[in-house]
Structures are given as C-alpha cells and as structure tokens.
Design a protein around this nucleic acid. Structure first.
Lengths: 319, 319
DNA sequence: TCAATATGGGAAAAGGTTTTCTCAGGAAGA
DNA sequence: TCTTCCTGAGAAAACCTTTTCCCATATTGA
C-alpha cells in the first residue's frame, strides 16, 4: 500500500476502488492516524492558523472578540495564536515576526478604541490583516461597533419610557466613541441636552451626579451613561441621595459588561456591543482574505443591542 | 551559493570562512529572509507552539495566566494557541485534536478551580500537559495558588492592625479553595471565629452583613472576604449601615481583581494570587517537559501576596 | 616539488503530505 | 483472439529546512 494511495483515499481524491478507499479509511481510523498539519501547510502554503494581536490587558474586549473569532474559525480547522503586546512596540514586533515565521494565514488586530492604532506597523505584511476595535492604515478592513446606533437605541429607550430630562454622562472627549455617542444622544434628546465628559470610571459617575445635584437646577429623570462602570457609579450615587432607580430616574449603561452590569443595584439596562459577533465577522473576513476572496475595504460598524434589566423600568423584552 | 551553506551560515553551524558567514547574514537581513517555521518544525519535530485550553469565559483568570505564559515563552520563540472550550466536551475534543494536528509541543489546561477538571480527557496524549487552576489526572503536573497561604496573610494582617472580632465571608463549601481559606482563617483567628459560606457574589456580601447585623450579637471589626466581589458587597453594605471602612471595620478581599478592587469604596486591600507568575511557571514547565527535561509530578502551590489599599487602614507597604 | 592535511563549500537525504504523471493489467468491443 | 480503452495503483516531485557526508582546493611541511 503506497503513501500516495493512502493520501488519495483519505482525501477523497483520485480514482480508486470504493472498497480500497473504505479499507484504508477504517484502518486509518483504527490506528488513529493524524495527518501532520505542518507538512500539509508546508505544501499548501496555508497553515490554518491566524494571529490575534491585542493590547487589551484586562481582556474585557479581547475575550469576547476572541471567543467569536475562535467559534467562527474552528469550523474551518483554523486555530488562533493570541498575542498580548501591551503598548510595547518591541514586543509587538517580536510577536508579529513570530506569527510570520509560523506562516499565519492572516492577522487580526484588536484594541480598545477605534481611534488609536496598535504600537506596531502592520502595513505591507505578506498576509492579510483585519482590524477590530483599533485603527488600521488607510484602505484597510476595519470592524467596530456602531456607537451612534447604540447611543440612539439607549436614548430612544429612555424617551419611550416617558423620560423627559435626559443627561449623558460619559468618557473623555478624546475618544471618538464618546463623541459619537454624545452626538447621537443629542440628536435624539435634543440639542440642548447636557453632556458631561469625564473619565471612564465609576468614580466619575459619582462625581457627575454630585455636580448635578450641587448645581441645583432641574434634576434629570433619565441618565444615559457612556459605559457600565460610569452607570454603576451613577446608580450608587443616586441611591445614596435617595433618588430611586428606576422609580425616579432611569439609568442606562453601555457595553453590557455582564459582570459589572448584572451586579449593579439595580441590575443595569444597557447596550450590548455584540463583541462576539464582531469577532466572528473578523474571523470570517480574515479567512476570506486568506483564501483570496476580496473584501471591500473600509470601516464597518456593527449594530448594537438593547439589553433590558432593571435600571430603567419598563420591561418589554427586545432581542 | 548553495542552500546548505546559507543554512549553516545563518545557524552558526558547520565550518566556513568568517567573511562568507557575514556576507550571507547581511544579505539575508537585507532581503528580509525568514526561515519557514513549518519546515523547521517538520524536521525537528518541534513546532514551537503550545496550546492553552480554558473554560473560563469571562477571562478573569485566563488572561493574566495567558499573559504570564506568553511572556515566559516568547523568549523561547514559542507561540500560544488559545482555545476557549466553555464546558462543551465536543468542542474540547475538536480543539485538542486541532492542537495535536498542528503538532503542539505541549498543552496547558486552565480552569477556574482546582477541584474540577475540564470536560475533556487529556491523559495519554502524545504531548506533555500541565494543569493550572484545574484538576489533572493522578500523577500529573498541576499548579495553583496557595489558598491557605493567602488566607493566612489576610487574617494575620487584620490581627496585626489590632482587629479582634474577625469574620470570614466566603463562597460555597463545595469549593476546595473556600474550605482551605476558611481553615487557614480559623487557624489564625481562632477556632470559634465565624465563617459564613454563601456564593461568590457581591449580593452575598450584602446579605451576609445584613444577617450579621440582624443577629444583633457582637459586631465584627475585621472581615476577611473570600473574593473581591464579596468584599465589595460587604464594604457597600457597611457604608449603608453607617459603619466606617476602615475606621470601624477593616475589610480585606481575595484575588486582587484590579478592576473590582480598585474601584470599590474604599479601594480594597486584598490578596493577590499571582496569576501571571503562575502562568509563567506553567509555561516554563510545559516547555521543560517538551524538551524532555523531567518535572516532578504533583500539585504545586504558589504563594500569594498582600496588596494594601485603603479598606483595612494601616499602610505599611509590602511587596 | 610532492604528499598529507586542513579548510571551505556543495550535494543529498530526511521530515510528512499532496498532486501529477505514468504504467500495468483487465475488460469490453470488434 | 486481438486491439483499444479504461481503471486502479504506485512512483516521483514539490514544499523548505537542517545536517551529515564528501569532495575539491589550498596550505603546509618534508
């Protein structure tokens, strides 16, 4: 029995007697034969491997994205190298070099914000690159979640619940996503609706409420927060001031960071950014590019999703 | 110039004129020559690749461990396949098969608790396996953090601060780590010191304080919590009852989950479980095994570390 | 000047798989 | 019965390195 016959039998290739094929297959299964992916890759120029580059230390973004990528690619026999490069250009280069040495079929670059790029240059690489939640070079394929859409969803939900005096408490102006969410908020809530920029922390949520209360003007009855941490700070601060959530004030977050949103008192209604789906798309795209299929370059914004818990009142289920 | 000469030049192998070697090296650098790791692996039977298996969805444990592994291995040119298998045996098998096909040099299995094993059988694999934070088969190499040590550190710190009436609020009895921490707590605090088992959530922290206050007995002045989430719930509940933290009560957590511990009011003094270091060790061990060096089998417990923030008072810096 | 030795470079095999090409033998048609 | 065609299986090349072995040339000593 020659090597080539076996190969053809196992891959359903070439002409051969049906029973020979069967015989080979069962025998191979019996002895637990595993084709060596290295040899296969050497020949086919495909390693069935992609690299995932990230500078997200806590993995709040990375892990869901990673899960999506992996889920999409495992069906195609593709495995994922995860490389955390922090913000270290040298480390980034080392990891990219290692990926290239290992003949990855493509690279997915992820970060924490779409208006900053990773500390490593991925232009002109011999393999396709897809950017997710991080800035790519001009003409690249980039994925992010649709901040305007999410913010619109959130603000409309507050209005739908009958809230009139809306406020947006969010992160720094330097973040494009903060700005876009704020713009969408004002589009829905009215141009005069107040927007407070601060940092992305719980403490800032407290402080913002403190500031609003001290100002003494009309108090808001609906607060859209730039992320779940701020929302948590806001919810706590309101409770401490005797304002009931959601009785007196509806609070809505952003990110649907489970572990944060679900443990807040009350559990946060928030906007899910569909990170897993984003990962899945990124995986399929890099795979398509690796196989030579063309992908229209440019920035793709994936829709968000309203997740209803208790912090806004209401309770109509959405999907 | 023959292929073999180039190979020898680049690997500092074989006999050759020094200037020939130099000439080849500079030329190779110029044209950006990259040896194909697949071909190298095919020949050497080493892929310089390890697989990391995890069922930790939120990545609270996985990512720090992963970072440690990667950091330790990148110096040896080894890359890491990350495979999230949830609790799905079928998915686990698919990923393990994919790893084996790709000729990984070894596998690191991680989970969330050392008394449960992953839903996949890793015994009898043709590559070495190291277990971290998950249960391995008898005779395997397993790493975990030293729960007794951490709990001892925490309890001693409370005593050192002059706290007398200590309570331990922690997770379910079914977790070995909860039991071990509780035992160590009682060893230091006295056998009669109360231990409240519940779940690993913030809500349980609230409820436990509620229960203690309602019981109306002598109130604790030092509370050791089984994790940072419980500690957060405890701190919040105490504040709401007018007990000052750390003025009246010292609260100490466990895990040093940055994002949770640092945002608590007040920021939590807690026990760091050294996950990154654990990852590093796991990486070096699997590498050693892959290279044929022997590693004594058994369970290794890595020491913990006290991280002082504000929730206990005191302020002596430790390392 | 010749022989022996040292030195530098090349040829070839090996690693495991796929694919193309070739060949032998059998079956069917004339 | 002979020829033609088809079918099934094997041989060989290719993928890219590394390593061992060998050969040619140069150098040195007699």
């Amino acid at each position: 029995m020659s090597v080539s016959t076996v190969s053809k039998a196992l891959n359903d290739n070439g002409r051969m007697a049906a029973d020979t094929r069967e015989r080979i297959k069962t025998l191979a299964a019996q002895i637990g034969f595993r084709p060596n992916a290295l040899a296969k890759g050497l020949l086919s120029n495909r390693s069935f491997t992609v690299g995932l580059l990230t500078n997200d230390t806590y993995g709040r973004f990375t892990l869901p994205v990673m899960a999506g990528i992996s889920e999409a690619l495992v069906d195609h026999g593709v495995s994922v190298f995860l490389c955390a490069i922090e913000d270290d250009p040298a480390l980034g280069k080392i990891h990219v070099d290692a990926m290239l040495d290992k003949q990855v079929d493509g690279i997915i670059a992820t970060g924490k914000r779409v208006d900053r790029s990773l500390p490593v240059d991925l232009a002109g690489l011999p393999v396709p690159v897809v950017y997710a939640f991080t800035k790519g070079e001009p003409g690249s394929v980039t994925l992010t979640s649709d901040d305007r859409h999410g913010a619109t969803l959130a603000t409309e939900w507050l209005k739908e619940l009958g809230r009139q005096r809306l406020v947006h408490i969010t992160g720094p102006r330097e973040f494009v996503s903060a700005v876009e969410r704020a713009e969408a908020f004002r589009t829905v809530a009215g141009n005069g609706a107040p927007v407070l920029h601060g940092v992305w922390s719980e403490a800032w949520g407290h402080e913002a409420i403190d500031r609003i209360w001290k100002e003494g003007g009309e108090r808001p009855d609906g607060i859209f927060c730039g992320n779940d941490q701020i929302a948590r700070g806001v919810a706590d601060a309101l409770r401490e001031r005797g304002a009931r959530v959601p009785g007196d004030v509806s609070v809505i977050g952003f990110d649907n960071w489970e572990i944060m949103a679900a443990q807040t008192r009350p559990p946060l209604t928030t906007i899910d950014t569909n990170l897993k789906e984003l990962g899945r798309e990124a995986g399929l795209m890099v795979l398509a590019l690796a196989e030579g299929r063309a992908i229209e370059p440019g920035l793709r914004r994936l829709p968000c999703k309203l997740v209803i818990r208790d912090s806004c009142g209401g309770g109509r289920q959405q999907n």
